[in-house]
Amino acid sequence: MSDTSGKNGKSGSNDTSGTLDEALERLHTTGPERNGRLTNHAPMAVEALVRHGQAPAVHRWLDHYAHKLEELPPANRPVTADDWREALGDPSRITDWTRFFARRLDGPDARPWREVLAEWWPRLLPGIAGGSTHPVIRTGHAVRTLLSGGDGEATAPRRAELAHALGYWAARHQPLPPLAPLAVAPSAAAALEAVPPVAQQDGGMPARLDQLTAFPQWGAAPDPDTAEEQLTELVTAATHRYATHGHGEPIMLVHAATAPNAVLRTLPALPRELWVPSLGAAWAAAAAVTAAYTPRDPLPYKKTDLTSEEVFERAAAHGDDHTIKFTDAALDVGDPLALAAAVRSIELNPSIF
């Protein structure tokens, strides 16, 4: 599974400069979206930049990204322990939800962040595809930061980031439509290959998700250890697939890998009894993105001789938020095809600089 201590000797726990906390505090005055539903990727991108030794570039990167940031939307009415179900999936309650989780993580009656996560994770999992899977991805980045270096890394800005991530997920919670089971696939790669594409390949992701009808059967894990192994297999398969299929929709198809990888990163913070349902939700997210955006035909990819560190340096210099996050996930996989897929994302997506 993902190494929460970080690849290549880099991790959030090595950020002695305080850059990550500074960046998160800067970002927590902004909302999780802009222009109605486009996602603010900055908290996820800066976490990946710092983790991979690019802390000196973070504030410059944020300066370039600043025009995509909007203020927090106005609060509506507080979410409470008694009425949270009626607020679930209501995007007009984003700030209400963020404040709800902030009180649970840092209020007078705050509980340890792992307890809050364990309580809400199974409630939020059925809506994993909501917000085009960005809320679960943001949650995965937040949890990885909190896990890095132990409880001493659970600073106030990092707990606040978890509150923002969970609040965004609760507000954009969107279950998938009922799905018929197709034939059992022998592997994650075969399962992704067998996912039927949606009929109408236009419009945004919500419209495409409404067209889903059936998924191949895969990932029937009998125990937590098997679930972890299969989730690792899924992340690897989705990352590899981007090398040959990312051209279908270079931005959106990164989420077929980054969404299940966010779940994989979160497993160490969760009770083991939640690992099997986590696999099922991760498969649903990866399959949904694949169905929504996969191209008709694959294209050949080029091998790369670059090291993991060199690939990430290129992604950081490129600056695109999705490219940074996908490269971060590809480094978790770490094999030559994953690195080639990361280089492909650098080629396909536009630079912000």
Rank of each mutant, 00 (worst) to 15 (best):
L166S: 08
V254R: 04
G152I: 02
S13F: 08
L212R: 10
L299Q: 10
R99F: 00
P222Y: 06
R314V: 12
P206K: 14
E249H: 15
Y242L: 07
D320Q: 13
R93C: 07
L299I: 04
T236M: 01
L125Q: 12
Q217H: 00
H164W: 07
E249Y: 11
Q217Y: 00
H322T: 09
G36Q: 10
S148E: 15
V79E: 09
T39E: 07
A57V: 09
Y301P: 01
G107L: 01
V263G: 05
E233Q: 12
L38A: 05
G89A: 07
A291M: 10
G131T: 14
K7L: 06
A55W: 04
L88K: 03
P186N: 02
R77T: 14
R26I: 00
A257W: 04
P224Y: 13
G31L: 09
A165N: 01
A330M: 06
G127V: 04
P126N: 03
H59P: 02
P268G: 11
A87V: 09
F326Y: 15
D82L: 09
R26H: 12
H255M: 06
S351L: 05
E161L: 15
E233H: 11
E153R: 11
W218Y: 14
T327W: 02
R158Q: 15
L274D: 08
H247N: 11
E47N: 15
Q174A: 13
R241Q: 07
H67N: 04
G131W: 10
A214P: 09
V116A: 00
R111S: 02
G149S: 09
D305H: 08
P186A: 08
A292T: 10
T226Q: 10
E347K: 04
D223H: 14
H322E: 08
P112R: 11
L176H: 03
A57P: 10
R104I: 02
V289I: 11
L337Y: 00
L306A: 13
L27G: 10
H322R: 14
D305K: 12
H134K: 12
G219K: 14
R159Q: 15
A284E: 13
G107D: 13
P74V: 07
T39M: 11
A142C: 08
D109T: 11
P197I: 07
A259D: 05
S2K: 02
G248R: 08
S278V: 05
N261L: 07
V116I: 13
D151N: 15
W61Q: 07
T258K: 08
P196N: 11
F215A: 02
H28P: 00
W275H: 15
K303D: 13
L69K: 01
W218L: 06
G12I: 12
P186V: 01
R60F: 00
A156E: 14
A287Q: 13
R159Y: 13
K7T: 11
G334I: 12
I128Y: 07
L179Q: 04
G319P: 12
G127C: 05
H52Q: 15
L176S: 06
Q174G: 08
T155C: 12
L270D: 05
T304F: 05
V235F: 03
A199N: 06
G203S: 11
K303T: 10
L279M: 09
S11Y: 02
A292W: 10
